[in-house]
Amino acid sequence: MSEVLVVVDHADGEVKKPTYELLTIAKRLGEPAAVFFGSPEQGDAVAEKVKKYGAAKVYVIDDAQIKGFLVAPKAEALQQLVEKTSPAAILLPSTFENKEVAARLAIKIGSGLITDAVDVQEGGVTTQSVFAGNFTVQAKVTQGTPIITVKPNSAAPEESEGAGTVEAFAATISDGAKTAQIVATQPRQSTGRPELTEAAIVVSGGRGTGGNFEPVEGFADSLGAAVGASRAAVDSGWMPHAFQVGQTGKTVSPQLYVANGISGAIQHRAGMQTSKTIVAVNKDPEAPIFELVDFGVVGDLHTVLPAATEKVKERKG
């Protein structure tokens, strides 16, 4: 059985959930092989994690020559790994950075590329959600080695024991790939809340918060949810861009999405319309968001949310 390369999503060696989702999907296409860009010392620990989800091999690529530059070195390293392993497919978690790595890799190895898949079936047929979630598209790579970037929450991770054999892969990075230098990196402070794109519940606030996100954050915390924001709230400087849900921010597809003081413009819908259950609180009964909801409250979020937060806490005891 051919290998399916899965690029590991991690933060400083801490493997993230989308990795397990991709390994689960990879089993439908061949034998999963994880690709870890990071410190070689962390390779064994990563292997212990990913082998539980079926990784037969774990290619460890030392990122010392890679991490100081944008995108191009990773694409080069993957090209060399593809040449060595002739995989059946390459799966990457669909982040902006990985989409760009995939883009350059596609040109390098002469292969078709599919971005932002929400499902991949046996045979490599992908599903994408397009036009702000109004259509789904089935597509397939027809040239070369399929390169597919897959969105978080696209599969329920299934455990299965893999060999998890660690193999160091020495990539040669050309000077030409080291031209866009990462001069400084400032890690964002952790909020202690779940990550927006991976969370089962997202509670968001928009213009209607008037800049006060406390009711939104309080309600989110009572539900164990991630906090999101509309573009209006981000443009007003009330929340950092990293929290933006929508076309130019994060696309989320949680079990539950609660939109508070958000009108529901198309740009916002594009980022949340595929959520399983949608709830909205908004003062304006005519707000377009109410066309999407399973349940809506016409009311002021500043009174509804604190009261709802108390009630949730009571129920949870």
């Binding site: 109410f290 399973d294 349940f295 409250v297 016409v298 509804v304 009261a307 709802a308 009630k311 129920r315």
Partner: peptide, 16 residues
């Protein structure tokens, strides 16, 4: 979906 109007704090209860 079901849309309710918050009156005298009824919205929070219905939401929860």
């Amino acid at each position: 979906g079901e849309i309710v109007t918050d009156e005298d704090g009824s919205g929070a209860g219905a939401l929860v």
